[in-house]
Design a protein around this nucleic acid. Structure first.
Lengths: 192, 192
DNA sequence: TCCAGTTGGCTAACGTTGTTAGCTAAAGCT
DNA sequence: AGCTTTAGCTAACAACGTTAGCCAACTGGA
């Protein structure tokens, strides 16, 4: 009956690590409890439900990714910033597939939701990438959505093994960065 | 004890419809059986498991989408084809979110897998879109992956409610199509 | 130091879901 | 008509998420 010394942060962190190792779908309350040296029902002293746990993992993931993105973009602009953002995103999804998976299916939630806040911070970083190009202010939202779609789509397709191995995926990613960079460079107001 | 007259195709079709209505996560063998006027264990006479069922829904979805894509692209090229492909993709995901969800998480499978075959056919259609631009043959694979990422990413983000409602999503989508069109038009061999 | 209150862990138990085993009767074939 | 096949059923089990209720370990103040 010695105590395990758990708290929500420890539980969520362990769950995130477990998700990366065995896949989010295989993260069961029993398996997570075993990892923590505890029985499954004990987890409910720290987390309301499995859905709550997933939301917290998502908040953790978005926070981590947001921090990495902020650091990667520090002092960069234009094509440099774009490439840094792209690589940061891709690396995170490859290294933390389980964490990232929790961020894919989310049910909104209020504006004070930690998930929404972490997501907003990540979005701000991406917005600075767009700001590094001379885009018509009316188009920045569109450009931002394009960036998100591109990064998210590539990452999830790669994580799901959706690309055949014939051709180098790394090369495709570099090509994609170049493609977006040229497009954003050409999207300056006079270009329309 | 009258027979219900089921067969795999009927079961899969009903499951797909149910998934679109209540969400893939809420498709339970019991609920599906109820829809078909049958008890849950009876479904196993037509489908090996729930995982098998999901794969079959995915094959159905990719086939349907592939057919719609082929029809939409008939007689079109260049920007017309690109826009048609984009709208076809987006419409399908919005109308059939449950079906599309089954295609997101797939575990490869052999080359004779119906899922792989349907996916290959869809990919061929997308390839014709790329072929409608003058791209360096060495870059077509990259361009194709870029297209897939863009469409897939936008569709999943929109389906997940990832875009705030501030700005019109339709406009963003049109902007995105324009962005890709300009990029592919500028990616001709002499442009590199 | 002791005591009271709080709380993190436990066991037991329940509901849901996916799945298997084994039976029966409907459908099809000769 | 009879034989084989098979679609559907009931019963049952295992895994999982979750709740209820108990008890021992920590905490803070007298």
């Amino acid at each position: 009956m010695p105590r395990a010394g758990l708290d929500p942060a420890v539980v969520v962190s362990a769950a995130a690590t477990l998700a990366d190792e065995v896949g989010l779908a295989n993260v069961t309350m029993g398996l997570l409890a075993e990892r923590l040296g505890v029985r499954a029902p004990s987890l409910y002293k720290h987390v309301a439900s499995q859905a709550d746990l997933n939301r917290r993992i998502a908040a953790l993931a978005l926070t981590e990714l947001g921090d990495q993105m902020r650091d990667a973009l520090a002092g960069r602009a234009g094509r440099d910033a774009l490439a840094a953002a792209a690589h940061t995103m891709r690396s995170y999804v490859i290294e933390h597939p389980g964490r990232y998976a929790t961020t894919v299916r989310l049910d909104a939630g209020g504006p004070d939701d930690p998930v929404a806040q972490a997501g907003a911070r990540l979005l701000e970083s991406l917005a600075t990438v767009v700001a590094g190009y001379e885009i018509d202010p009316a188009d920045t939202v569109h450009a931002l959505r394009m960036l998100r779609s591109q990064f998210h789509g590539f990452a999830t397709l790669e994580a799901a093994g959706g690309f055949q191995m014939e051709t180098d995926v790394d090369k495709s990613f570099e090509w994609l960065i170049d493609f977006v960079d040229r497009g954003l460079s050409a999207s300056t107001p006079p270009g329309r």
